[in-house]
Structure formats: C-alpha cells, structure tokens
C-alpha cells in the first residue's frame, strides 16, 4: 500500500511545486512591472526636488533683439546651444522678471537655458550682460518719421502680385487702406491676423458696390527678397478664397529691397531683419481720396467693421 501511495504523493508534490512556481513567476513579473512603472511618474506626481533633478542646464550666448515685459520674455539671436539646438533667433521666457530691467535691445548676453524634461518647457536664467548695446541703437530697428494725420502720401513705385508696376499716386480718388505684412510671418497676432482682417474688410466693402468702387486695399511686404510676385499671388489667393478677381480691389505689393527702408519709414513702420526673421510693428493707414492720411491704427486689435464704418462715412453714396 505504501509503495502505491508514494507515486501519488510524489505527483501531488510535483503539482503543488509547479503551481507554486507559476504563482512565484506571476508575483515576480508583477513586481518587475511595478518597478518599471516607478521611474516614469507624471510631472504632477513629482515632488519639487525630483522635478529639479529633471531640469537640464545649457549655456546660452547671444544678442538681445527685443524685450517683451508683458510676457516676461526676450527675443535672442543666439549661438549654437551644444547638445540642444543650433543657433537661431527665438523668444525665451525669463525666469527672474527683475532681470528684464537690466537688459536693453542689442545687449550681448550669456545665460543658462533651463530645460524641464518632464513637460518640455524651457526658460532662461542667470543672465549676464557681456557687452551692452551701443548707445542710441535699438537692435538695428529702422527709426521712421511717420506720416501724420493730414500729411500727403508721397508717391512710390511698387510691383504687384501680377508683376505689374503700380504708382501709389495712381490710387488718388479712392479711399486707400494700406498695411505691411510678410508672407512667412509666424506670429499669428501680427501678419496672419492683419491679413485675416483685411480679407473681412475686403468682403464687407465688396458687398456694397458703391463702397467697393471708391476703395482699394494694399498689403505691402516687409520681405521683398522672399516675397516675389508669385509668392504674393499664392498668399493673396489663400485669403481671397481662390478668387483672383479680388486682386482688382486688394493688391499685394513689394518694393525693391533697397527701397523698403525709406518706404517703411514713410509709413511709420519699425522693423528689424535678421536673416529670415523680421520683427516689426503693425500699422494700418487709411488714405483719403486726396492722398492725405485720414486715420491710422496701430496693432491688430481693431475690428474690420470699425474700419469699414470709417470708410463708409468718407464715401458718398455708400449704404452706411
């Protein structure tokens, strides 16, 4: 009997052993998964000291092009940042707001770029001015003598999106709305917003035949080297919903590159060009039928209807 029971006991023990091994494997696997999960908590789960450990520091050197106090940021034309990115011009948030008071456009600086790997954010800190900007400069910005209300618009020859020469004086007798843009502008509140506004002004004016006949819109590029007539035509068509007949009322113009500074100064534009990046102010002018400045709008916060109303009040026979 005993000899018969032994194989059964052995089989039973083997079975128990196999089940224990399976359970152990399961426990070990679970433990390993738990360990693997621990090193990748979310940013919210990290303590402050743990977050500090995930901040990488990179040395940064470059020239301050502009300072945006409201956003607590500076735009810097920086050299290569080894191990992070090549040299370029870009805005940086400044960790210590008080550091902004010690900076001026044109300053050569060194700083530390802090890159937080948890949420991919970055900012600059420990800013030191290596060489202050030369007195009287503002990072190369063109200082203009802008047209004032009532001033006559001087003539200039420009080229439109169809590669045809146009004289500014040829628009006498029409209400002329003029602004400056460039097609590669990446700031949504600048050129894309102004051009979107112009598209709505164009649509509103076009809805009133008499007003449309007495008005004309011009968007002049600040980047005439890149913005050829072909580029301006493609850009314009996107905002004209692919209706080229719209160019008869809204043209996209370029000056010769050598003429741009004088033209921009005339219209009161300030701009700073570094390679392919153009930092500029935004200004829109309404010229009356006698070629005199009737009204100006700075920035892009104006409403299209507001400008259309002003134009309608200056256009006899218009509906408004």
């Amino acid at each position: 009997m005993k000899s018969h029971e032994e194989p059964c006991s052995f089989q039973s023990a083997l079975d128990r052993s196999w089940r224990s091994t399976r359970l152990l494997t399961l426990i070990v696997t679970g433990f390993l998964m738990l360990c693997a999960a621990i090193p990748t908590p979310t940013a919210a789960q990290l303590t402050e000291s743990q977050q500090a450990a995930t901040v990488k520091r990179y040395p940064l050197r470059g020239k301050v092009l502009s300072i945006q106090l409201s956003k607590q940021q500076i735009t810097v034309q920086h050299e290569d940042i080894p191990g992070f990115m090549p040299g370029m011009t870009m805005p940086f948030h400044v960790k210590d707001a008080s550091a902004l008071k010690r900076l001026a456009p044109g300053d050569q600086i060194s700083a530390v770029l802090l890159v937080r790997t948890a949420d991919e954010s970055y900012e600059v800190d420990e800013i030191r001015v290596l060489r202050p900007a030369a007195a009287g400069t503002s990072g190369g910005a063109v200082q203009g003598h802008p047209l004032q209300l009532g001033d006559s618009l001087p003539d200039a020859v420009l080229t439109n999106q169809d590669n045809k020469s146009v004289h500014l004086s040829s628009y006498r007798g029409k209400l002329l709305l003029v602004t400056f843009i460039y097609t590669r502008c990446p700031m949504p509140t600048a050129c894309p917003m102004i051009t979107s506004h112009f598209a709505r002004v164009h649509a509103l004016l076009s809805a009133d035949a008499k007003l449309a006949a007495q008005s004309h819109l011009l968007s002049i590029t600040l980047d005439p080297t890149y913005d050829t007539p072909q580029v301006l035509r493609r850009f314009g068509l996107a905002y004209l919903h692919d209706h080229p007949e719209g160019f008869a009322h809204w043209e996209f113009l370029r000056s010769e590159p050598a003429e741009l500074q004088k033209l921009a100064s005339t219209f009161g534009l300030e701009y700073h060009q570094e390679d392919h990046q153009i930092l500029h102010t935004v200004r829109t002018l309404l010229i009356d039928k006698n070629g005199r400045v009737l009204r100006t709008w700075d920035g892009s916060s104006w409403k299209p209807q507001e400008i259309v109303d002003v134009m309608a009040s200056a256009a006899p026979g218009a509906k408004r």
Binding site: M88, T183, R184, C185, P186, C191, P192, T195, S196, Y226, A238, Y239, D275, H276, Q277
Partner: peptide
Amino acid sequence: TMPAFDGR
C-alpha cells in the same frame, strides 16, 4: 494661410 518656414 500657413507661412513657409523655408530659410528659418
């Protein structure tokens, strides 16, 4: 309406 980043 998306700007080109050519050159930048």
